[in-house]
Amino acid sequence: MKKKSLLISFFASLLVIIGMFAVSDVTAPAAKLSSDNPIQMNKKKKTITMLTTVNGTYFTQGTRHVIVNSDGTNGNKSLLKTDVQPKQVYKDLKKLGAKPGDNVTKQSKPGTKVKGTKVKVYFVINGKKMRAEKAVQVNGKDVKNLDFKFGGNMAMNNKMKTGCVLCFDSCAVGTVSGSKYGTEYGEHFTGKSSVLPKDGKQVKVIMQVK
């Protein structure tokens, strides 16, 4: 009897320990977002959060790039710069169950719209979470929904080394891009200086898989 109860308690504690380890993968507090750790994933909320820096150039000039890795060839051409690699974003989005569209190529007809799982994009400014669309303009006018989708494009991204993570319009290279505007729509997007922090300040960007 004693042996039996010992065995039960042993298995019970083993189960508890295994359970704790299994749960810890989801619930344990992740390392704080910093320049050393610029990306976080939350499986429960199906989000990835990345740290970016504002490039004030594109408050007045047009661009089509929202987030680009600083070391990419387009590193200085985006509204937000990041140390996160597009490959990391791609992997994390796949882990969260998103499916890449991979339908846009360099040969695609102008105006082709990107496909893939829908991704909601939020900016966290002064602790306040808001939709990315609130902070940008298209041809000087507000835009309601850019309809971001997980384009994928990892092969092209690796080849071109542009560092493109998030694009405003449908793109053959960007990991995520806005499907409201088709390919080759052009550099007609500007950041709102009244909403975004000043040049050089940091902004957290959240991508949520829908």
């Binding site: 000039q61 047009g62 661009t63 089509r64 387009n74 051409k77 052009g186 550099e187």
Partner: peptide, 9 residues
């Protein structure tokens, strides 16, 4: 040249 977004990008 900045006025040409094609070049600038």
């Amino acid at each position: 040249a900045w006025k040409s977004t094609w070049l600038q990008m």
